[in-house]
Every structure is written in structure tokens, then in C-alpha cells.
């Protein structure tokens, strides 16, 4: 906790995970560091896979906070990162918005599953989330992000979420979603969310997609599996709430197996 600053600007906190193959078919975690609101716990893994839980030890991010999470999977690592609960973006006393930056790096011969629980944008909050993923040509990724706009019956806060995925230096996906009060016009209209209050995506990167691209499909109206311009696929979905969103994403993902 000693490195957490709570200056007038809000809380600055970061967490770092470094995973690598341990040379015996397992995954070692030489770096597992969190602070303040971002606590990390190693949980029981399965087989070669190491599992890490991100545990929210304080509420937030609140207005003015800036969280940073950096996860690196080096050669031979199989790492799965989840979170113990949903992340709730809340308004702060500070008028400034909050920032949450996630940076994921996966080397050749490594696999990362980044599967946090939902991000809930509470009324009056203002959060800018960036997720930046850099993969080597032989890396594997399963990434899920889900956003729920407002708690039950509540107007959403302002949320801007950008997801960028690069494979071997080449950007294959760059998407920004803006929603809530003050977002660019029409965000909740027939082209944007049309009243849906949960939106999410799953990115799957597998080197074998380069030779055998996955097939695209539409799943139950609200979700689509879309092969990207690279060895990757995106599952995109909108739903009335977080539960139905998860069902759509999980259901659509099955088509890739």
C-alpha cells in the first residue's frame, strides 16, 4: 500500500504480472505485484496453466483515479487472468475522469486468457479504458471484455473504451466504443446500442487461423463471430443485460471450436 498515492488527482495504482514457462511444462510467475485497489492472487491452476485473480481491494476507479495493469506472458507460459468481481466505475469528488489502462504482451509460444468480469459504468461516472494488446506471430490469446451501462435501472455514466490488438507489429483490430451522457451523438440509436445496456467482445487469436481462417456467423441476432484481417476473430455482442450478454458471447464462441 505504501506506493499508492492519493494526491488530489485521485488514486494512482498499478499491477504487474510476468509469466514464463518454468521449463518443466508448467508456468512460473516471477512477477506478481499489485497495490492499493489492484491486488493480485495466484489461485489453483490446471495443468500447465497458471491462474491469477485480480481482486478489487478498494472501490473504483473513481473520478481522477488512474489504474494501470501490465501483463506479460513470455515463451512457454500459459496464463489465465480473471477478476474476483465486476469492476464498478463510480463518480469521484474530483471532476476529472478516471483512466484504466491495460497492457497485455504475449510472446511466441505463450498463451494468455484475459477474462475479467464485467465493467459497470455507474451513473455520473466518467471512465476512459484502454486495452492494448501486443502479440508475437506465434502467440495465442483469448480476451473478453464486457461493459454494463448503469447498475439496475440507472442511467449509465460516460464510458470510452478502446481496444487495440497488434499481431507481429501489425494492427488487426482497433475499436473504440463511446457511450453515456456526452458521448458522440447517436451512441444509443439504431446504429449504436439501440437501448441495449450490455455490450461486449471476445478476441481470439490463434496462429493456425493464418492457414485456416475461422468461419464467421451470426448467433441469435445479438452476436456475430467475425474473422479479422489477420489470424484472429472477434465475437461482438449486445444484450439487454450482463447475464444475457455472457450467454451470447459464450454461445457464439462455441462456433470457433
Amino acid at each position: 500500500m505504501d506506493r499508492v498515492t492519493t494526491a488530489p488527482g485521485g488514486v494512482r495504482a498499478s499491477a504487474r504480472v510476468l509469466a514464463r514457462g518454468d521449463g518443466r511444462g508448467g508456468t512460473a510467475l516471477p512477477v506478481l505485484e499489485g497495490e492499493g485497489p489492484l491486488a493480485l492472487r495466484r489461485t489453483r491452476g490446471s495443468g500447465a496453466e497458471a491462474r491469477v485473480m485480480l481482486v478489487g481491494a478498494m472501490s473504483g476507479p473513481l473520478g481522477g483515479d488512474h489504474f494501470t495493469v501490465d501483463v506479460q506472458a513470455r515463451s512457454g507460459a500459459r496464463l489465465r487472468v480473471g477478476s474476483a468481481a465486476a469492476t464498478l466505475a463510480l463518480p469521484g469528488q474530483d471532476k476529472a475522469g478516471a483512466r484504466y489502462d491495460v497492457r497485455l504482451t504475449v510472446d511466441d509460444g505463450a498463451e494468455l486468457c484475459w477474462l475479467p468480469e464485467q465493467l459497470i459504468s455507474a451513473g455520473g461516472s466518467d471512465l476512459r479504458l484502454t486495452t492494448s494488446v501486443d502479440l508475437a506471430a506465434g502467440a495465442r490469446l483469448l480476451l473478453r471484455e464486457e461493459q454494463v451501462l448503469g447498475r439496475a435501472g440507472e442511467e449509465p455514466g460516460r464510458l470510452t473504451s478502446r481496444l487495440t490488438v497488434r499481431i507481429d507489429g501489425r494492427c488487426v483490430l482497433d475499436q473504440e466504443l463511446g457511450c453515456g451522457p456526452g458521448a458522440p451523438g447517436g451512441w444509443d440509436g439504431p446504429a449504436g446500442l439501440a437501448g441495449h445496456r450490455a455490450v461486449g467482445q471476445v478476441v481470439v487469436v490463434r496462429p493456425e487461423f493464418a492457414d485456416r481462417p475461422p468461419a464467421g456467423c451470426v448467433y441469435e441476432e445479438g452476436a456475430a463471430v467475425m474473422p479479422l484481417a489477420g489470424p484472429a476473430a472477434l465475437v461482438s455482442a449486445v444484450a439487454p443485460d450482463g447475464l444475457r450478454l455472457r450467454r451470447l458471447l459464450d454461445g457464439a464462441l462455441v462456433s470457433l471450436d
Partner: peptide, 15 residues
């Protein structure tokens, strides 16, 4: 370059 996206435009186009 901006990367602003409209989820239902993408999903709707696939359908």
C-alpha cells in the same frame, strides 16, 4: 486515426 465503432452496424452487417 479514430477507431469509433457502432456495434449494431457491425453485427447487423453480418446478419
Amino acid at each position: 486515426l479514430p477507431a469509433r465503432s457502432a456495434p449494431l452496424l457491425e453485427i447487423g452487417a453480418e446478419a
